[in-house]
């Protein structure tokens, strides 16, 4: 299977990364190449095989409901790109 330049644009938008017009074709080729590699999976029949999400057979540990973290705003915002009155700033969100 190959990925078309149109699909590259669609994927790039889903992933919120702009792609230069000149690079679209190259990405289409690169991604198609990777897909061809990936499709070697199809040579094996995996029907009935349980998908494996984690390498180890463990279950989720639970944390006691205790407040252990306190205000660290100054530290955490020290290198933030745009902050005012303790808020992170972004271009106007329209709803």
């Amino acid at each position: 299977m190959s990925i078309t330049p149109n699909e590259v644009m669609k994927i790039a938008h889903l992933a919120r990364m702009s792609v230069d017009h000149d690079d679209v074709e190259r990405y289409a080729q690169d991604l198609s190449g990777i897909l061809n590699l990936v499709e070697h999976m199809n040579q094996v029949d995996v029907r009935g095989i349980e998908p494996m999400a984690h390498p180890l057979d463990m279950c989720q540990r639970l944390r006691a409901d205790v407040v252990t973290e306190f205000n660290q705003r100054d530290t955490l915002q020290a290198h933030a790109p745009a902050v005012e009155n303790g808020l992170f700033l972004v271009p106007k969100v329209i709803e």
């Binding site: 994927i11 889903l14 992933a15 991604l31 990936v38 199809n42 998908p51 494996m52 999400a53």
Partner: peptide
Amino acid sequence: VKRRIMIGTYALSSGYYDAYYLKAQRVRRL
């Protein structure tokens, strides 16, 4: 990084999840 983000986004996107991601998880078990 961009290539991998894009291929990963594609593999998880609607209509391709079973054919790529789920299949890969099954192969992983093999």
